[in-house]
Design a protein around this nucleic acid. Structure first.
Length: 938
RNA sequence: GGCGAUGUGGUGAAAUUGGUAGACACGCUACCUUGAGGUGGUAGUGCCGCUUUAGGUAUGGGAGUUCGAAUCUCCCCAUCGUCACCA
């Protein structure tokens, strides 16, 4: 038996034990309630884990262990999102297959994760780049290809039901999500089509579809990117410029689910900020489409979308996006030169320029006028790039009195700013978007209020067929192709129809997985085709048809992985119905907030789709989500004397007295901001052995600053080093003790010794290290000990139930401190304490559990201590006595004393009388078992 | 600019329904113990003031509600996140 806290040996022993005995293997167990706790699986990067990564994993592991003790069957898996750009970029440079790099990185990750003592069920590990996994990603793609969205039933259905509808009723009146331009054919026309033509027509409705769309093209990465992979006009990975380009691409009709994605947010327990980000991304606006006639052109009308149709009498101009397809036609000859110059100028501006010059007004008159349908007024038609081609109709009605951008535009081009509401103020100075007051100068709606005016106008427009109430979403369909190698192949091949046009067809399900072919180089082909084009000669469907050469985006494999964990080895289904119906959905999902609009939105989309098809049980896949705060770096600095022949460093507190330059210093040779000078000299080439140090109190104190954690700033802290020094249990306790899980915080190793000392203190309740013997006794617990213990049981349970991981550590510390004071070595108390501690410090808990005579390994599936309130009952309560809200003293009264008795007792007290100083209180407030407040009049 | 969040000692933080602000931990001070790898213990530590005692003051700033506000309401300031000419 170990009588010293030798954490290295202890941790190694138990990690080996867990692995050997498969202690954390989960299984479908109908006799137990289930709990599914999931971490966002990592991309296995070459750098390995840093100290920020485990934060969320520690929290989820604590929940997993806590729920096991509460009698749940817990699913707590881990895997790897192993397709991605870095491995491929590395392959381009070295020629090494990305699978090899990926494999190496995963091995390293697993080793690091195992060192932390996580209770993962490793038998369920998944890797998105493994064919046995991406077989099912491809399978889901096939289901999407074979489905359409029926707005009548408000769900996705098999494409066969669409065929039936087309055959019987045609597309007239069909409520389906598709492109607006799709021709509404009759049943007769459907029957008149050839099979090829019908197939081509159906492509317009599939949830996975090919489309010419304007995409974010990144030349340096040689691929298209989704909107959420572009930040400020630059690629999120690498920071390369991104341009707009029209390309034929696979897309996903996520917009079909816009409203359900919005509504679903109400039933999940996610943070407000995250839900709000998703709402903004979906961007629902309720408004009206209105058609404006064009002067001199009778066969066309310009359609605008507005959320404020009530302001239509205030229109003094109209603006089209420069990319609008009618621009050429609508430009009058004498304006042609100006318009062309403007379009050329807008094209020359990068996405970045546009974003950074939001406030500048630019635009050009087309020479054309349009007619306001309400008052027949003629208003000039402009082009301006503040109108976006991709949103709404690409046309906007200008209402300068109510919209600041329109106001700026009107001022710039000297256009009228008519008032429309009597409540608008100072519209000659700025726009006023109020909805208050009564309408003026507004024909039909004069004298009405906002609501009535809007309803009246929509009705008026709809009756005449020139307008319609409409819901508009900002969210676009998701581009699903990437011109890269290291991703899932799309299970599609192209076959020409009678006219020689290539149409996409799915391969057979039995042919899955469609594996990545070997290629010579991981670069685009000489003709600019994606890397898979290099395999073209040998890699053909049925030996003759080209496969799709682009691969799936990074988010494909991560949009359903929680289901694979449920039944990871299944060879015939992505997961069995039995597994899906038992585990259902994730009860607790922990990961970074950077996935707010990417992964979390796409995952919800795929989940809803799979639900529609009846493959999964729940509409929302993650009931509760916590975003762990990012851990920032905490850099240390030394201050080098400028203009000195001798290399000299000045301690932080004295630096203001000298002329110094701050230099980063490796945080790993600094402890509590005190520099290890010998190590500093040894590790740096630029610091000679005779360097001078101006110290304060005999120490060199470093300055510090919060920055991003990065190698160049010498502030990366590796968890392996800390585990070697203090043990995994200490690291786990310390990371939780840092503060609330959700909070952003700088990493600071300074106070880790407190957590380590705490675990040593626990150890000393069990062992006398000097005498090298156990000091646990069988004697019954005293009332004081039971009170201390049960106070902790209650608080630990309450805090874990509200995910307050940091305060649990404090509670355990207080409990251990108090038991130490009481010199408690009673077995019955210590047994419960070990259970409380075990989710946080599992290795230590296992060791102590055995020391108490329990069976090895049985602590993981033991029962959580039961709180007993009778141990906390007190005969007396110490009332704080306050005067006008300020506490001056405390007085003890019987816990059962009535408020009147307490009041009488307080007023009879000598000290209270002294504070009263002869004055009579105007009121005495007694809150039982809380406080007494004596109110003194002024 | 919109939206969301946050603001408490030298530091990380706690205060769950409004009820003794600063638990717990780091750091620091003093003393005892120990004496080779991040020892153990005792006491103290928000700020101002005092020899000690009183006492005063304090949760970004200002106002308000209340017997009582870190907590609720309004205005302002700062920081972080996010979207960003979305009609």
């Amino acid at each position: 038996m170990r009588t010293e806290y030798q954490f290295r040996e202890i941790e190694k022993t138990w990690q080996g034990f867990w692995e050997q005995n498969q202690t954390f293997k989960a299984q479908v167990n109908p006799n137990k309630p289930k709990y599914y706790v999931l971490d966002m699986f990592p991309y296995p990067s070459g750098a390995g884990l840093h100290v920020g990564h485990p934060l969320g994993y520690i929290a989820s592991d604590i929940m997993a262990r806590y729920k096991r003790l509460q009698g749940y069957e817990v699913l707590h898996p881990m895997g790897f999102d192993s397709f991605g750009l870095p491995a491929e970029q590395y392959a381009i440079q070295t020629g090494q297959h990305p699978a090899i790099t990926t494999e190496q990185n995963i091995t390293r990750y697993i080793e690091q994760l195992k060192n932390m003592g996580f209770s993962f069920d490793w038998s369920r590990e998944v890797r998105t780049s493994d064919p046995s996994y991406y077989k099912w990603t491809q399978w889901i793609f096939m289901q999407l290809f074979n489905s359409w969205y029926n707005q009548a039933s408000d769900k996705a259905e098999s494409i066969d039901t669409l065929k039936d509808i087309l055959a019987t009723k045609g597309a007239i009146g069909l409520q389906a999500v598709c492109d607006e331009e799709v021709e509404r054919i009759s049943a007769e026309s459907w029957h008149a089509m050839t099979e090829d033509e019908q197939y081509a027509y159906l492509l317009n409705f599939r949830l996975a579809y090919l489309d010419d769309s304007v995409v974010n093209w990144c030349p340096q990465l040689g691929t298209v990117l989704a909107n959420d992979e572009v930040k400020d006009g630059l690629s999120e990975r690498g920071g390369y410029p991104v341009e707009q380009k029209k390309m034929r691409q696979w897309s996903m009709r996520i917009t079909a689910y816009a409203d359900r994605l919005l509504r679903g947010l109400e039933e999940v327990d996610w943070s407000d900020s995250l839900k709000e980000q998703q709402r903004n991304w979906i961007g629902k606006s309720i408004g009206t489409d209105v058609e404006f006639e064009i002067e001199g052109i009778s066969d066309k009308k310009i359609k605008v979308f507005t959320t404020r149709v009530d302001t239509i009498y205030g229109v003094s101009f109209m603006v089209l996006a420069p990319e609008h397809e009618w621009v050429a036609e609508l430009t009058k000859p004498d304006q042609q030169a100006d318009v062309e110059a403007y379009i050329t100028w807008t094209k020359s501006r990068s996405e970045l320029d546009r974003v950074s010059e939001v406030k500048t007004v630019s635009g050009v008159f087309t020479g054309t006028y349009v007619i306001n349908p309400l008052n027949q007024e003629r208003v000039p038609l402009f082009l301006a790039d503040y109108v976006l081609a991709g949103y709404g109709t690409g046309a906007v009605m200008g209402v300068p009195s109510g919209d600041q951008r329109d106001w700026n535009f009107a001022k710039h081009f000297d256009l009228p700013i008519p008032a429309i509401l009597d409540a608008q103020k100072e519209i000659e100075k700025q726009a006023d978007n109020t909805k208050e007051g009564k309408y003026i100068n507004s024909g039909l709606i004069n004298g009405m209020g906002y609501k009535q005016a809007t309803e009246t106008l929509i009705q008026w427009l709809e009756e005449r067929g020139i307008g319609k109430g409409k819901v508009q979403y900002r969210m676009r369909n998701a581009v699903f192709s990437r011109q890269r190698y290291w991703g899932e192949p799309v299970p599609v091949y192209f076959k020409p129809n009678a006219a020689g046009q290539l149409l996409p067809y799915l391969i057979q399900e039995s042919e899955l997985p469609l594996e990545l072919p070997k290629i010579d180089k991981y670069l685009p082909t000489e003709t600019g085709e994606p890397p898979l084009g290099r395999a073209a000669d040998s890699w053909k469907y049925q030996g003759q048809y080209d496969y799709e050469w682009s691969t799936m985006p990074g988010w494909a494999g991560s949009s359903w992985y929680w289901y694979r964990y449920m039944d990871a080895q299944n060879g015939v289904e992505f997961a069995s119905a039995e597994a899906v119906n038992y585990w259902k959905a994730v009860d607790l999902y922990i990961g970074g907030s950077e996935h707010a609009t990417g992964h979390l939105l796409y995952s919800r989309f795929w989940n809803k789709f799979l639900k529609d098809l009846g493959y999964v049980a729940e509409e929302e896949f993650a009931k509760k989500l916590i975003n762990q705060g990012m851990i920032q770096g905490r850099s240390n600095f030394v201050y080098r004397l400028k203009n000195s022949d001798q290399v000299t460093f000045v301690s932080h507190g004295l630096k203001d007295q000298y002329d110094v330059a701050a230099l980063h210093v490796d945080v790993n040779i600094v402890e509590n901001d005190v520099l290890d000078i010998a190590e500093f000299k040894r590790s740096r080439n630029d610091v000679p052995a005779d360097a001078q140090f101006i110290l304060e109190d005999g120490k060199y104190i470093c300055g510090w600053e919060v920055e991003k954690m990065s190698k160049s700033k010498f502030n990366v802290v590796n968890p392996d080093d800390l585990i070697a020094k203090y043990g995994a249990d200490t690291l786990r306790v310390y990371e939780m003790f840092l503060g609330p899980l959700e909070q952003f915080k700088p990493w600071n190793t300074n106070s880790i010794s407190g957590s380590h000392n705490f675990l040593r203190k626990v150890w000393r309740l069990f062992f006398d290290e000097q005498a090298q013997k156990s000091i646990v006794v069988d004697s019954p617990a005293t009332p004081e000990e039971l009170k201390v213990l049960h106070t902790a049981i209650r608080k630990v349970q309450d805090d874990l139930d509200r995910y307050s991981f940091n305060t649990v550590v404090s509670t355990l510390m207080i409990c251990v401190n108090d038991l130490g004071q009481l010199k408690c070595h009673s077995k019955s108390v210590l047994r419960e304490l070990v259970l409380l501690l075990s989710p946080y410090a599992p290795h230590l808990a296992e060791e102590l559990w055995v020391a108490l005579g329990e069976a090895a390994g049985s602590i993981s599936h033991a029962s959580f201590p039961v709180f007993n309130p009778t141990f906390l009952e007190e005969n007396e309560f110490n009332y704080p006595i306050s005067f006008n809200g300020k506490v001056k003293l405390t007085l003890a009264f019987s816990a059962t004393a009535s408020p009147a008795e307490v009041e009488a007792g307080v007023l009879a007290n000598e000290q209270v009388q002294k504070h009263l100083d002869g004055k009579a209180p105007s009121k005495v407030i007694v809150v039982p078992k809380r406080i007494v407040n004596i109110v003194l009049g002024k």
